[in-house]
């Protein structure tokens, strides 16, 4: 079996569901003949027709809004935004309608929509092309927010997202779209939403990250291992609803935890994870949970983006601070 990249796994999942369910439609700007700006929909229009894989006019509010009407009538739209930084015109439709239609209609209508967007920095893109504002969506009741971090998880989680009866914001870490290859059988097997994935076992510290940052987080774990530190690496994958109990299980074992994300720190998902660890596992902690994140700045133009994105050095230093903490020692 050929090994495929994360973006190819996205294509494979889309094709699988387009083939399996005639209610599934793919829509977005340039998703047709062009195959999407990152080629995530490459070949799909040719295979399934322009009625199933639709190029839309250039209007993100429209893309977000018609998906609501399509879903209310039983279709399962998979809508692509070209970059996360261009979702914002669609926020009103996603937050005020997609996330609420089931509740507003007391369950008689629902929104089985997937809103896909490439997200995150690190590809030397122009301004607005490198955003990671997943916390905006994770704050909203009624939504699911999913971030895959490998080809296999991209395939399995996207299948689950498309089959889910509720709206899912599916954020694809474009920095690792083609970073690694993996055998991903096209077996139609979905992965569970709302469940963490443990990517590495270890007993000394829990490292939590998602999306592209896992690449550096896993590298940091490797470096820590050279010094005899066992890191357990957890990928929540579904950021909302959050499977906090799998995180707590790990923290119970390690007593120490570091959260890594490239989004800005204030109000980021790291804050929520720290708060929930405090809720459920304060007594188990041997050190305060720390964060290594993007700064509370505007995402810089690409010449400076590597200063902004958490790198292995910052993650290792963050882990060291957690590991070296001792009660009463002050700072």
């Amino acid at each position: 079996m050929a090994e495929i990249t994360l973006v190819e796994a996205v294509t494979q999942a889309l094709a699988h569901e387009l083939d399996a369910d005639e209610r599934v439609l793919v829509l977005g700007q340039d998703v047709g003949a062009n195959g999407g700006v990152f080629r995530a929909t490459d070949g799909l229009q040719e295979r399934f027709g322009a009625d199933r894989v639709r190029d839309t006019p250039l209007a993100e509010t429209m893309i977000a809004g018609i998906a609501v009407g399509m879903a209310a009538q039983g279709l399962k739209p998979v809508a692509e935004f070209q970059f996360m930084g261009f979702i914002y015109p669609g926020l009103d439709q996603i937050l005020s309608h997609a996330a609420r239609l089931r509740n507003r209609s007391r369950g008689r209508l629902c929104c089985p929509i997937v809103y896909r967007a490439p997200y995150g920095g690190g590809i030397r893109a122009p301004e607005h092309h490198s955003e990671s504002t997943e916390a905006l969506f994770a704050h909203i009741p009624g939504l699911r927010v999913v971030v895959p971090s490998s080809p296999a998880r991209a395939y399995g989680l996207l299948l689950a997202a498309i089959r889910d009866p509720d709206p899912v914001v599916f954020l694809e870490p474009k920095r690792i779209y083609r970073a690694a290859r993996q055998e991903v059988p096209d077996d139609g097997e979905a992965l569970p939403l709302d469940r963490c994935f443990r990517l590495r076992e270890g007993g000394d510290i829990t490292l939590i990250s998602w999306g592209a940052s896992l690449k550096e987080t896993l590298a940091a774990a490797e470096q820590l291992a050279e010094d005899g530190v066992g890191s357990e690496v957890i990928d929540p994958a579904t950021l909302k609803p959050l499977d906090i109990h799998s995180i707590i299980d790990s923290v119970e074992k390690t007593g120490r935890c570091l959260v890594v994300h490239e989004a800005a720190r204030t109000g980021g998902l790291g804050a929520e994870i720290v708060a929930q660890i405090n809720d459920y596992a304060f007594d188990l902690l041997r050190a305060p949970v720390q964060r290594v994140t993007g700064y509370d700045t505007v995402m810089p133009y690409y010449q400076l983006e590597n200063y902004y994105l958490p790198d292995v050095e910052r993650i290792v230093a963050g882990a060291r601070a957690v590991l070296d903490y001792s009660h009463g020692g002050g700072r």
Binding site: M62, G65, A67, V68, G69, A72, Q73, G74, D92, Q93
Partner: peptide, 15 residues
């Protein structure tokens, strides 16, 4: 916002 929902409903009804 409902005008876009109607457009989407129209897409579905035509489809």
């Amino acid at each position: 916002t409902q005008l876009l929902h109607a457009a989407g409903v129209g897409v579905a009804l035509k489809y």
